[in-house]
């Protein structure tokens, strides 16, 4: 199973707000294994989906240069149980972003019904946590494209947003099979 807990972005405004949807299906393992006979979506995975929505909002604000991790769930309130067939709309809003991290508030809705509310604190990992990268840049960009992020993303000025150059370069190297140690040349 891939650790992707959102299906698609439907709105993304750089540095401000992101909206993603998650379709809950009975085919998913977490539903039939968690409490057999009473198939519901675990709340922890709803927090994870909101964290993926919000974490990408935080990461994009820094050009995906920072290593962004969920550091703290300040608040998580659930108003109803989620069942197979439900479609969750996750909305994340960036409340504050600083050098060492960011605060995001988020909601999950089913239609117009408020299902959950969270407050999340993200950290930017610094050198104390080593230099290991969290995602290979070309795979990360592939993931962003799978989520349709750049189909809907706009800058804070309302212009269409594009992937940052360092991710595009890594993607080009993958297609051209050129190592990062050599200058990128078009063939």
């Amino acid at each position: 199973m891939r650790w992707l807990w959102i299906d698609r972005f439907v709105e993304f405004e750089s540095g401000r707000r992101a909206v993603a949807i998650k379709n809950v299906s009975l085919a998913e393992e977490q539903l039939d294994g968690y409490l057999p006979g009473f198939n519901y979506m675990p709340t922890s995975l709803i927090v994870e989906g909101l964290a993926q929505t919000g974490g990408l909002l935080v990461g994009e604000a820094g050009g995906f240069r920072e290593r962004v991790v969920l550091a703290k769930v300040g608040k998580a309130v659930f108003h109803r149980t989620v069942f197979p067939g439900d479609q969750l709309t996750y909305t994340a809003e960036l409340c504050d972003i600083r050098g060492d991290g960011a605060i995001v508030s988020g909601t999950s809705r089913i239609g117009s019904e408020l299902q959950a509310e969270v407050e999340l604190v993200f950290a930017h990992l610094d050198e104390r946590f080593g230099s290991e990268i969290l995602f290979e840049p070309e795979e990360f960009l592939c993931m962003l494209r799978s989520w349709g992020l750049y189909d809907v993303a706009v800058t804070s000025d309302g212009e269409r947003a594009t992937p940052p150059d360092h991710l595009l370069e890594a993607e080009a190297r993958m297609f051209l099979m050129q190592p990062a140690s050599t200058p990128l040349t078009d063939q």
Binding site: A71, K72, G74, R98, D100, G101, A102, I103, V121, A123
Partner: peptide, 8 residues
């Protein structure tokens, strides 16, 4: 990490 939260 709590200090980020406290300051906010």
């Amino acid at each position: 990490i709590d200090f980020l939260d406290i300051v906010f």
